[in-house]
């Protein structure tokens, strides 16, 4: 497979970068700055009409949507064991958690927009920010429950592409929600971020990042 990944540091495209590293696939990386207009250039919009990352070219075919790309790569590299095939007992849980990655991701995207992209306080809705934070905590609560039987990863049989889909959000979550009340999630996060493939998906030293504060507090209304 010839793969080119279009990526912005710390954005959802991290999922794809991380998975490519887990799968040991060769790829070419094109990095865009999240804050300048490079994702709005005509050449990028021809690839991704909404100007978002990721876009990935796989043997000349363009794919958008990190969840779809993660599923597809796991299917194409079935022998690496990161997917769960349709006949597997874990198929339902695998699919449910893979999609749950974006249920988690959308709250993080909304909070990122409110705290970071809308830099002027008048542009924000503290009510919305509060609600999104609460919903994020609830979504994490389901994972806390799932992990409380002591499993290392989301599926009892071990690490899978669902951990990549969800793990991106888990890595990001403590910037918006304290994990003190979610000890299993915190331990799971520690386990994910020490994986060598995850470390390779992080921005290099000195690169411009989306997230510069350790914690983003909801403003008082």
């Amino acid at each position: 497979m010839k793969i080119t990944l279009h990526h912005a540091h710390e954005a959802r495209s991290m999922r794809v970068l991380w998975l490519l590293e887990e799968l040991g696939l060769p790829y070419e990386l094109q990095v865009y700055d999240f804050f300048d207009k490079s994702l709005r250039s005509d050449s990028y919009l021809a690839l991704h009409p909404a100007g978002r990352v990721p876009a990935v070219e796989i043997d000349g075919q363009v794919m958008l949507e990190s969840g779809a790309i993660v599923e597809y790569l796991a299917e194409r590299c079935a022998d690496m064991g990161l997917g769960r095939a349709p006949q597997s007992d874990e198929r339902m849980a695998y699919l449910d958690l893979l999609h749950y990655g974006e249920t988690l991701g959308q709250h993080l995207a909304n909070l990122t927009q409110a705290h970071i992209v809308l830099y002027e306080p008048w542009m924000r809705s503290p009510t919305q920010m509060g609600l999104e934070t609460k919903r994020l905590a609830k979504v994490l609560g389901r994972l806390e429950q799932l992990l409380s039987d002591g499993r290392d990863y989301l599926l009892a049989s071990g690490f899978s592409a669902a951990d990549v889909a969800v793990g991106y959000g888990i890595w990001l979550a403590p910037r918006f929600v304290h994990l003190d009340a979610l000890p299993h999630v915190a331990a799971y996060r520690a386990r994910l971020i020490t994986r060598p493939a995850f470390a390779k998906a992080l921005p290099p030293e000195g690169a411009r990042r989306i997230y510069t504060q350790a914690f983003y507090e909801v403003p008082n209304v």
């Binding site: 969840g67 339902m92 893979l98 749950y100 249920t103």
Partner: peptide, 23 residues
């Protein structure tokens, strides 16, 4: 657990993601 719909009880398990249910 996150108190959202849909939830689908099927074949002995509960799914909570519409995309996963469709697949």
């Amino acid at each position: 657990p996150a108190r959202r719909v849909p939830a689908l009880e099927i074949d002995g398990i509960t799914l909570v993601e519409s995309g996963a249910m469709v697949q």
